[in-house]
């Protein structure tokens, strides 16, 4: 394992800020893996820590393919994690909304530009990304729709689902979109959680990456074949909203199969304990996402169901 400085800068009060990268194997720049970009992405950093341990073991065993190099960057934003902030510690900007970045611009823009320049020649880019809604979701792989994406490659992770869909307004300033434009096949690997540690889905994410690296001939590793991924378009995800605000009493967990009309959760009046509303499935399917806040606003998305799919 070789440790390198990806980016460094001085700060006003905290001394030098250094982003480290760790490379395993030597040779062709094969795969780059990026972890937490925000201060609340504990699960994503945890996954990197597990992956780092595994890659170190594989390297010690001589199981990194000859002439292949893997770069792992566990976190770009550890100060925000230390300060319990989600975005960049000094100006609330978001590294994953700063790409392609500007080497002469503000700090997050400089980090984005420096990172992109460093990893532009890797064949594959993998980012452990947090789901945009707060809660638990089924682990999945997502590719940005740039016209250069390859869904068949995404299947090689062996995750339960591969998610495709139209780009959202902010996608064009993310790492993965810009990596794709530079010619790197880039994948977003989503685990079940963000702010809490979930060992099972963390290990699934690690296994999926090792499986992909094996299948691309970058490592030699005997692993389970994983899932034959089901590819779904985001348009197949039906949003179920809370008609009322209050305490959220969850009755159905993520990854459960549900029937149309089934009660998924209850909204409880915080003043008198009465059930203000029942959250009802509007379609048959499998629960892809469920929110995990103790209380909810009116009209927020509390469930997403993969429409008309069965186990």
């Amino acid at each position: 394992m070789n440790k390198e400085i990806i980016f460094s800068m001085n700060t006003a009060f905290r001394g030098e800020y250094v982003i480290h990268g760790y490379s395993y194997g030597r040779g062709e720049q094969s795969a780059c893996i990026v972890g937490a970009m925000r201060g609340n992405e504990y699960q994503q950093l945890y996954i990197c820590s597990l992956l780092a341990k595994k890659l170190a073991e594989l390297e010690a065993q001589g199981s990194i393919a000859s002439g292949k190099e893997i770069l792992l960057i566990p976190t770009l934003n550890y100060s925000s994690m230390n300060a319990k902030k989600k975005r960049w510690i000094s100006d609330d900007s978001d590294i994953n909304r700063s790409f392609p970045g500007n080497p002469k611009g503000p700090a997050t823009s400089r980090i984005a530009a420096t990172l992109l320049e460093r990893i532009k020649n890797y064949s594959y880019g993998i980012q452990f990304t947090s789901f945009y809604l707060q809660g638990r979701s089924i682990p999945h792989v997502r590719m940005m729709a740039t016209g250069k994406e390859s869904i068949s490659l995404a299947n090689l992770f062996g995750m339960p689902y591969v998610l495709t869909g139209e780009n959202r307004a902010f996608d064009k300033v993310t790492l993965n979109y810009n990596l794709q434009l530079q010619g790197t096949q880039a994948f977003s690997v989503y685990s079940s959680t963000t702010e809490t540690i979930d060992d099972a889905s963390a290990n699934m994410a690690v296994s999926s990456v090792l499986r992909f690296l094996t299948r691309m001939g970058i490592i030699k590793y005997d692993c389970h074949g994983g899932y034959i991924s089901t590819t779904i378009n985001e348009s197949a995800l039906v949003s179920i909203k809370a008609d009322e605000a209050g305490f959220f009493r969850k009755l159905v967990e993520v990854d459960s199969e549900v029937k149309r009309g089934q009660v998924l959760a209850e909204i409880v009046n915080p003043m008198d304990g009465s059930v203000k509303a029942e959250i009802v499935a509007s379609t048959d399917g499998i629960v892809f996402f469920v929110q995990d806040s103790p209380m909810v606003f009116q009209n927020v998305v509390v469930y997403k169901i993969i429409r008309r799919i069965h186990r």
Binding site: E244, A245, M295, F297, Q298, N299
Partner: peptide, 10 residues
């Protein structure tokens, strides 16, 4: 107008 979690409306 959207109900907030406790007592208020946005």
């Amino acid at each position: 107008s959207v109900d907030l979690m406790v007592e208020e409306e946005l």
